[in-house]
Amino acid sequence: MRVNFTVNGVEQTADDVWEGESLLYVLRERVGLPGSKNACEQGECGSCTVYLDGTPVCACLVAAGQAEGREVRTVEGLADGERLDPIQEAFVECGAVQCGFCTPGLLVQAHDLIERVPEPSDPEIREALAGNLCRCTGYEKILDAVRLAAARKAEAGR
């Protein structure tokens, strides 16, 4: 089947999509955006988190056909051209990135948190990132990065 949707502001048409295919597969294999990662295929790891009409979801659990006519935003769409989003900068600065495979999903999820909650508390950060597994960092630096990005955003908003 054919699926038409918008990804990172660009209208996309994917052809020959199998009806049981996930949005994640379409993004990675058909649209050429492999930033969202496939690590469990069951919504347990969060590596494939993308925005679907502004709400973070696991792209592996969205049927491709369900994305018809909707707006998707992936890790590739967080930066403004060559200018990284503050959450991306904070991940690099804090050393929250190691192997980088969990990073794209974490970034989208953290981006959403900071957009919704201007100054998130630690429990709020932990709760927001509860479904994003990381096997390298032990999470500590990831939490630091979210705190830093949130603080900067709050500072900029004052």
């Binding site: 009806e19 069951q42 592996c60 056909g65 369900q66």
Partner: peptide
């Protein structure tokens, strides 16, 4: 939401005749 159905499809446990969105 797809949170159960898509897991079954991703793991290729079975392929139903149709998905009803």
């Amino acid at each position: 939401g797809g949170t159960d159905v898509m897991v079954e499809l991703n793991f290729d446990k079975h392929r139903p005749e149709a998905l009803l969105d």
